[in-house]
């Protein structure tokens, strides 16, 4: 089977800083992969390059058969990037819910505004996805009435409502109080069990070990090691992986 995400020779510079160096990776359908690494290792930037929230400096991004080369210009480029964004759903560290819209409006905003879906149908989809994250009863609340964990679950429902091929999670629990992390991780675990393809940038080693099919370790803009969690956690080869996992083991 063809990979659903394929990144080839991806480079990214911030000014003179070379933050991603010739990244190559492939993700299979229904695979859950975690990107781990110290802060500044480039893992968030890599994730944000996949939907062009960050413009890659060089390379090719492929999602579900759609190939976008960085050098494409003009109208074609805009259309390709738009298609790429429709194939990916993103969850942010800071939730970024729309504060002027209720919970359910947040979730059906995408289908209605972007896909021109009929509103009644979009509401049905929104309800279904709020049910999935266990927040249907909060439909008519404004985001400011929710806890951080609930906000993040709504943000997940908002991304799911667009029916993306891949879900991208950018440190989804890093802005949460420790007692609220669990509810978000269990929603993500449920999605993984339902067969959602997921790429998760995280510091939650427990989650990575339990849920991931594959873990990529990033260091100084490179993938220093990759493999299934049981191998990586028991027998890390790279010293950077070792030092990263040390904190978890202790």
């Amino acid at each position: 089977m063809d990979p659903i995400v394929k990144i080839s020779h991806l480079d990214k510079y911030f000014g003179r800083l070379h933050v991603l160096k010739d990244i190559n990776l492939e993700i299979e359908q229904k695979e859950v992969c975690c990107l781990i690494g110290r802060s500044g290792s480039g893992k968030s930037t890599l994730l944000r390059c996949i939907n062009f929230l960050e413009e890659p400096s060089a390379g090719t991004i492929e999602v579900d058969g759609l190939t976008v080369h960085v050098d494409v210009k003009g109208k074609e480029r805009r259309e390709l990037i738009h298609s790429l964004r429709l194939r990916t759903g993103m969850v942010f560290q800071e939730f970024n819910l729309f504060p002027h819209l209720t919970v359910i409006e947040n979730v059906y905003e995408g289908p209605v505004t972007v896909n021109n879906m009929e509103k009644n149908k979009a509401i049905e989809i929104a309800k279904m996805n709020l049910e999935r994250v266990g927040l249907l009863e909060k439909s008519n609340e404004f985001p400011n009435k929710l806890s951080g964990g609930q906000k993040q679950r709504v943000a997940i429902a908002r991304a799911l409502a667009m029916e993306p091929k891949v879900m991208l999670f950018d440190e989804p629990t890093s802005a949460l109080d420790p007692e609220l992390i669990g509810e978000v991780l269990s929603v993500m675990k449920k999605l993984a069990e339902e067969g959602t393809t997921m790429m998760v940038v995280t510091h939650e080693m427990g989650f990575a070990r339990e849920v991931a099919d594959r873990i990529f370790v990033l260091g100084e803009g490179e993938i220093v090691e990759e493999g299934p969690p049981e191998v990586l956690f028991t027998n890390p080869r790279d010293p950077r992986t070792k030092s990263l996992l040390e904190r978890y083991h202790n």
Binding site: N51, R85, G89, E94, F98, T113
Partner: peptide
């Protein structure tokens, strides 16, 4: 963050501004 969330959903700059 608001702009990024709108862009990630696939909104065009015009829609993002308006909505």
């Amino acid at each position: 963050g608001q702009r990024e969330a709108a862009i990630a959903l696939g909104m065009t700059p015009g829609k993002m501004m308006q909505r």
